[in-house]
Computed example of a mutant assay.
Amino acid sequence: MTLRLSVFIRCTAFAMVVFAGTGAMAADPPQNTMRVTLLGTGTPVPSPERFGNSTLVEAGGQKLVFDFGRGVTIRLAQLRIPFGTINAHFLTHFHSDHLNGLPDLWLTGWLRPPYGNRNTPMAIYGPPGLTKLTKGLTDAFVRDIEIRKADEHDPEAGIAFDVHEGAPGVMYDQGGVKVTAFNNDHGPLVVPSYGYKIEYQGHSVVLSGDTRYNAEVVRQATGADLLVHCVTVIPDELLKQFPAYQAVLQHLASPEDAARVFAEAHPKLAVYSHIGLNGNAKEEDLVARTRKIYDGPLVVGQDLMSIEVGAQTKVGPR
């Protein structure tokens, strides 16, 4: 046995022990329910508490990931979910904080240890421009891909992309799980920008994506079991001191904007994610400003929070 092969085998065995040592994979949600896990509830701000925006939806034996913020692979590993077992991946728009975890998820998911082991093309859905993005990633990492195919014999299919880019409408419909994309409003230059509605067994989950107040989000979320909505809180002193925060505020919902959506849509549960607490802003400020307009069920999301959507909606740690 060559030294190189011996080292590779030992490293692979170590990785298997580490991944297995975290425990068995979590069970699927109960029949006829969906489970939504907030993998990352943050913004571009580098934060150890709130990783980049990403959401996992499990239903009908399928695992769907929406957006790929910083640290998405770490959160999935914490849940003991091998990256190769994800059935479909969805992108809302092309801002980097929703994309910077994609190369990691794609490349690491191809590796042979149990945390990866993707053997089929990575199915990814989203707005026009997705083909260009995935081609660019493949070109950028071509040398790594060539080396691993020759050196580790990783299957070529597992590093390919299966791209589905398209206009708003039904993007995915498999095994009783339907995903519909719709336009939101992330500012006039951030086009296209999508939200997603996920439906299964008579239940619905709506992810607003990055948006300001938007009537289409209200329409899609009206009567939904769960609405996950972005929000940003920017104290007045920051707006005066740093002009860049004006641009942030012009592209994302304030607590009042989001509260207006909640009040008009009447979801069974409203949850905040992509939470921008800028400067000295606190969660209490976010809630207080929301409650001036909306008095319904409300949760401020945290990384790895799990929401079970079924006959009853349950919120708690995964």
Score class of each variant (00 low, 15 high):
L5C: 10
L5T: 11
F8A: 14
I9L: 14
T12Y: 12
A13P: 00
F14M: 15
M16S: 14
F19S: 01
F19M: 13
A20I: 01
A20H: 11
A26S: 06
D28T: 05
V36I: 15
V36S: 14
L38V: 06
G40A: 07
P48G: 06
F51D: 06
A59F: 03
G61K: 08
K63W: 14
V65S: 05
G69R: 01
F83M: 01
G84N: 07
N87Q: 12
A88Y: 03
L91C: 08
L91Q: 07
T92F: 11
N100M: 12
W106N: 00
W110L: 03
L111Y: 01
P114A: 05
N119G: 05
A123S: 10
P128T: 07
G129W: 04
G129Q: 07
L130E: 05
L130T: 03
L130N: 09
K132V: 13
T134F: 01
L137N: 07
L137Y: 09
D139P: 00
A140T: 13
I145L: 15
A150C: 10
D151E: 15
E152F: 06
H153S: 12
I159D: 00
A160T: 02
E165Q: 14
A167Q: 15
G175N: 09
A181H: 06
N184V: 00
H186K: 13
Y194Q: 09
I198C: 12
H203G: 07
R212L: 06
N214M: 07
A221V: 01
G223N: 04
A224S: 15
D225V: 00
H229A: 06
C230R: 09
V233N: 04
L238K: 06
Q241C: 08
P243R: 02
Q246N: 09
Q250H: 01
H251Y: 03
S254P: 06
S254Y: 08
F262K: 04
E264Y: 10
E264M: 10
E264R: 12
H266Q: 12
P267F: 07
Y272S: 00
H274D: 14
E283P: 12
V287Y: 07
Y294N: 01
D295C: 05
V299C: 15
G301C: 06
M305R: 09
M305K: 08
I307V: 15
V309H: 14
R318K: 08
